[in-house]
Design a protein around this nucleic acid. Sequence first.
DNA 1: AACGCGCCCTGTCCGC
DNA 2: TGCGGACAGGGCGCGT
Length: 271
Amino acid sequence: MPELPEVETIVRDVDRLARGATIQSVDVLRPDLIVGATADAFRRCVEGRTIRRVTRRAKNIVIDLGADRLVVNLGMTGRLLVTDAGAPLPSHLGVRFGLTDRRLLLYQDVRRFGRLQCIPVGEWEERDRALGFEPLLDEFTPGALHDLARRSRVAVKTWLMDQRRVVGVGNIYASEALFRAAIDPRRPANSLSFAESERLHRAVREVLTEAIEFRGTTLLDYRDASGQEGGFSRRLRVYDRAGDACRACGHPIERIVQGGRSTFYCVRCQR
DNA sequence: AACGCGCCCTGTCCGC
DNA sequence: TGCGGACAGGGCGCGT
C-alpha cells in the first residue's frame, strides 16, 4: 500500500499528534505482526516509554523511544492511526497503544503483511545502513543513480523498486516516474544513458514531492494518521489507467506484468 | 552475486 | 446467488 509519500504523510501526522506522549499500555491482538521477538517482549520494550520523535527511513516509520526504536512497516494494507479516547475501534486491529491523555495509537492491517519491532538503536542503525539512497536527500544525485543502474540488467521499473539501491519507490511511483521521464519500463537498467538517468532522477524527485504535497495516493486502503484519504489519486498519469487515453498523446495506456507486479505505461511516449 | 519466483493473508471484483 | 480466479501501495527467503 504505502510508498514513500504515504509513509511520509503518516510520519508527519504521528509526530505532530503523538510526540511527547507516553505509551502507557500495549495490547498485541495479532502476535504474527511482531517480528524477532515475542509479543510479551515487544510489550515490555515499548510500555512506559515516551515518543520523542517520529521519522521515516525508506518505507519504515521509525519511532524514537530513547534507547530503542519502534519500527513499523505497513506492508500493503497497514495503517497507523491516532484516535481520541472513546472513538470506535477499527476492524482488523493489530496492536493498540494507549497514550497519555487517553488517546490511542492504533496499528490496523487487513492482510497482515506489515510488521512491528522494538529494537536497540544499534540494531536499527545496522539495518538502516543496508538500505539505499533516500531519493529526496542531496546524497541522491543523477550520477549516483546512473552508476548504480549500470550494474544491473533487470528491467528499469523492477530496478527502481529494489530498496537496496534507491528507497521509497514502489509500484505506483515507479510507473509514474518512468512516464514522466519518458523511459520504457522494460529497458534494462544498464541501458540508460546519462541524460536518461538525469531525467529519471528528476522525475522520481518530482513525483514523490508532488505526492507528499497531496498527502499520498489512496487506491483502496491507504489512510493518513487521522483516517483521511490521500489526494494524489486523481493526478496519476498512468497507474491503474489501462486502456484510458494517455494524457500527453491520447494513445491507450498499456498494462504489462513485470516481476509479478502490474506496470502501466504509454508505448508512444516512453522509449 | 544477481536475479526470478513463490509465498505470506484477506478482501474485492469480474466472468461464467 | 454462488464460485473460482485474478488482483491489490511490500518484502523475505529460496533455488539457480
